[in-house]
Nucleic acid binder design. Structure first.
Lengths: 218, 218, 218, 218
DNA sequence: TATGAATGAGTATTCATTCAT
DNA sequence: CATGAATGAATACTCATTCAT
């Protein structure tokens, strides 16, 4: 029984991987079930034993990835490090996840927006959850005096999400190596860290733009 | 003759406006030419007197808007104000442009990514031009010692583009008033301004997060 | 008034000539009114001042030509020469008419069959008239003992029409000079003349395959 | 596997037969895929599992028939009978083939010429093959002294093709029984036989217009 | 479960024709 | 008479989905 489930699960994965590949190459609407099936080495009809319909495939890709991402983000949010480090780790998490997965990055940054209905109906809730976690980190940083409190946490969450998305988009459109993406992420980390520092804070406060990981602010 | 051109031009605009409305409501692929024509109060066939095909409509929306945006950005880039002010003005420009144009915002943030082919073939060049202008502003700020020079200009350009795009996206997905978007923009302006300040700057340097417009840094 | 009519008539001709050219190049169904109008150097709408619709243009080409042909055939039929000569002249008439008019030949042999409805409704009557004249010549030849009377005249008419059409078709499909078509016509004339000779006729009857023009058989 | 192929083949035939019926009734351009599908009792889309497009259906009808016809003509050409008998048999073959197939005759004589592109691109080669076989029979007849050698073989081939086509066309346009077509064919056979006899041949040569089948000329 | 042949709903686009100028 | 912009009906073809095997 468990074995059967494993088998199912493995075939499901195979189809999802094929779909990511085809979606990345063709876009959601131009992708053909036939091609996904062929890429996954299954028959057309088999796909419908694992997914309700074509939309469901895209939704599943998004949901699977987003759940995993949100789970890891939650771990970071609840870890015992400074808020600045949390922000930095989140950036590293998101960009690092894409190492060797340009196809996935393309699906995430481009294809996910291909169906308005899909975006509003399925993606919005998980996207909100994502923003919530990010905003919570910011808010906690502010409450602990680590971040300037003048910024609305949710606005920063949106902006940070967007900044990372922008980095990913240009990475996908160009053909650069993944390392550059990570370096870009570090620049953004630093920019955020500095920008978030409390204004007019204690004159003596250290102003290193980039604190060493683990050095909690207090 | 000029009158004829005006007439053509006005009808073209009418169709574009209708298309923006329908694209925003349905998404590019689910939008029907029939509905665009109906919304524009012209016959289906008339659309093809003004546009090569459905793709061409989306391309035209993007091109028209992007050319206008890049034009204004260039003006800002070449104006005689501090780089920080330039950044702030650009943010205001982009978000301000959308007042009363939520449909357009939706098309820009969502629909524009609906055709991979379209994105890579038509959008990429103009998008690059946009990034070039932005990166140039950053670079000049760095050269004049106004901005921390450790950041790669183009990375910042991508991140800023993305941050604004993220703000627009959440504004579009929610249904908030335009004013909130502008306020969010000001937060991002401030964050950028602070984040961009030269690190380890003179201890006595004023640290107002947001300098008054026109006050050149030196 | 007459002048006006002449002007009309001339423009009508111009359109017809343009249509023949375009039909020959594209075929009836693939020919575009726009292209005919452009070729004739008139506006699209103008065509509809001279012809009821696209079908009417093809019909007019056929009718004009067929009426002229039938008129000349009638002249030949009623001329005072031997029936064999009449047959020969008719062959020369039909093939000779095409000198410098390959486009017309193409329209006649190919395009005329492009609309079943057209063929049955409009062409059939005139085609029958054509066959009538031809059959009449054969019948008269038989009554005067010049032709073998065992052949049904109408069958011969159909066959002769077809034979000439076959010659025209291959001439059109290939790209040979018009002279070859005329020579081919002479071969067919001779074949017909011989084939039509009365069987077992008077032993002393001259058996020249090709009698000199004007030499009436009796 | 063989069974699958048979099934495919049978369905293909069903569609072709339906197409012949519909083409004959409406003409190629006015025929609707929907009607062909309905007549063949399959779904619209099914047609595209067997044929590339609408053109391909017409091409297949022509190719199938023409290949069969050319095959049988080759048999006749290589059979050991007199050339005159070969000619007669070919005439009988072509007209006899149409017994019970008026629709096919209509498609062959009329619809086949409906697409210039089709005619020149696909039909011309097979048509030439047809003419080659016919011309070869004539030439061999001439070389054996059975036929008058003054006629260019290919011209006769074209003319004979045309004559038969003319017979078929009038048969299709009228609504006569097939027997009349066969009788007409015999008249043409006889005409050809006589017309082809060597001119001024040996005085004593028998001049029966129509030799009994099998009686080789020498 | 898996298959892949069959289905048929759905749509961008064309183009003959009209008619306001 | 002439124009050519506007019309909108009409259709081949695609492809997600189903279902008999």
């Amino acid at each position: 029984m468990q074995q059967l489930t494993d088998k199912r699960s493995r075939k499901r994965e195979k189809i999802l991987r094929a779909a990511i590949k085809v979606f990345a190459r063709k876009g959601f609407y131009s992708a053909r079930i036939k091609e996904i099936a062929h890429t996954a080495k299954v028959a057309d009809g088999t796909i419908y034993l694992y997914f309700k319909n074509k939309d469901d495939i895209l939704i599943s890709i998004f949901a699977d990835r987003m759940d995993a991402l949100n789970g890891k983000m939650l771990e970071i949010a609840e870890s015992r490090v400074s808020s600045a480090v949390k922000v930095r780790r989140i950036i590293e998490l998101q960009l690092g996840n894409l190492r060797g997965h340009r196809d996935l990055a393309e699906v995430i940054t481009i294809n996910l927006r291909q169906s308005n209905r899909f975006l509003k109906q399925y993606a919005a809730p998980r996207f909100n959850h994502y923003l919530d976690i990010m905003a919570r980190i910011v808010r906690e940083g502010q409450e602990q005096g680590e971040f300037e409190s003048a910024y609305p946490p949710r606005v920063l969450a949106c902006a940070l999400f967007g900044a990372l998305d922008g980095l990913m988009l240009t990475w996908v459109l160009g053909s650069r190596e993944h390392q550059r993406l990570m370096r870009a992420g570090r620049s953004v980390s630093e920019l955020m860290a500095r920008g978030l520092e409390p204004a007019g804070g204690g004159a003596g406060a250290p102003r290193r733009a980039f604190r060493r990981e683990g050095s909690s602010r207090r």
